[in-house]
Simulated assay, not measured.
Amino acid sequence: MNMIDAHIHLDRYQDEEIKRMVLDSAHIEALISVSFHLNSCKKNLLLSQKYPKVKPAFGYHPEQTLPSENELNVLLNWMNDHRDEMIAVGEVGLPYYLRQEQGISIAPYLEVLDVFISKAKIWDKPIVLHAVYDDAPLVCDLLEKYSVSKAHFHWFKGEQKTIDRMIRNGYHISITPDVVYEQEIQQLVSVYPLELMMVETDGPWPFEGPFAGKMTHPNMMEESIRKISLLKKLSAEEVSDVLHQNTKGFYHITT
Rank of each mutant, 00 (worst) to 15 (best):
T201V: 05
Y96I: 10
E182M: 13
V191R: 13
D11A: 14
M3N: 05
D134S: 13
S190F: 08
L110H: 01
I104Q: 04
E71G: 03
P206S: 13
T254W: 09
E71L: 09
K214Y: 04
F58S: 00
L138H: 12
G249W: 03
A136Y: 05
Q187W: 10
L31W: 10
N169K: 12
I4C: 07
T216P: 05
V112W: 01
V92P: 01
F36E: 14
V128D: 03
I173Q: 00
Y171H: 12
V92E: 01
L45I: 05
P204G: 02
E85L: 12
E63H: 09
H130N: 08
H152K: 06
L76S: 06
E29V: 15
K119D: 06
S105E: 14
I127F: 08
L75S: 08
M21K: 07
L46G: 07
N44M: 02
P95A: 04
T216Q: 03
I122G: 00
I185L: 09
A26P: 13
I163T: 03
I32F: 01
E238R: 14
K214H: 09
G90V: 07
S174T: 06
E238T: 14
R165P: 02
V179I: 15
Q186F: 02
I4R: 09
I175H: 03
M21H: 05
M21T: 12
Y181R: 02
